[in-house]
Design a protein around this nucleic acid. Structure first.
Lengths: 120, 120
DNA sequence: CTTACGCATTCCGATATAGGCATATGATGA
DNA sequence: TCATCATATGCCTATATCGGAATGCGTAAG
């Protein structure tokens, strides 16, 4: 097979640094493509392509305003991401204490019984 | 140029569904590679490769235990992700009200002054 | 030392980008 | 209708995976 499609969900959409920058800019309000491209130092076609990905996963919305197309943030798609990552919150600080403890117990168990009793 | 490297940061690491599954499994404690591969229905080499990526971005840690290598979660790298996404929290519900309001103001402004004063 | 087991790595092929460039499309205005 | 501005798309190249299959390597056991 091949590589997985990155265009399919919010996780992949925000994996791209430039797309993250676009989203951050859009927090300040709607913006036309050219302005986004200029502010982020990328070409207009690139901006359009990134915006297309963001639109396909539902993170931005477009609105025609005369000749321009104003892109606006739709952050609802970020909520599942936030929740998924949040599921690890209690491990951020705890992880290493638990690991150390685990290791310590294991070492101790090995010292007590002669080199034989292997777990599993 | 080419595609951005996915191996470089946590955002890219968790963009892969299988890697997310690995992380979820590891919340339950340390696990050897073969067990992860079996539980997730993937080949052992694939599991090793995903684990390598996760290790390179610092989301998992390895520990040799006899013939086995136990992988454990190190969720600290997820914290920046959580914080970045959290920066959009106040837009999750607000976005569309603001948009509607914005549009309404714009329409109104256009009706008041004759077709001329265009912003920007 | 040889075998067996667990895991990592390498080689390979297919594919999906990211980016640049040129161009098509759409809407606006003369 | 034609020219112009703002965007979107198509084409092309280089690259970076993801996945599979085979193999290398380290540790433990006979």
């Amino acid at each position: 097979m091949a590589r997985a499609a990155t265009t399919s969900d919010a996780f992949n959409a925000i994996a791209e640094p430039q797309r993250r920058e676009i989203l951050v800019l859009l927090r300040g309000g709607e913006r036309p493509v050219t302005e986004l491209a200029r502010d982020l130092g990328m070409s207009q076609p690139q901006a359009s392509k990134h915006l297309r990905v963001l639109r396909e996963v539902g993170l931005v919305r477009v609105r025609g305003a005369g000749k321009q197309r104003l892109y606006g943030l739709d952050a609802r798609g970020l909520r599942p991401v936030h929740e998924w990552v949040g599921g690890f919150e209690r491990f951020w600080d705890e992880t290493f204490d638990r690991l150390d403890e685990y290791v310590r117990n294991l070492e101790q168990a090995r010292q007590e019984e002669p080199p034989d009793g292997d777990d599993r």
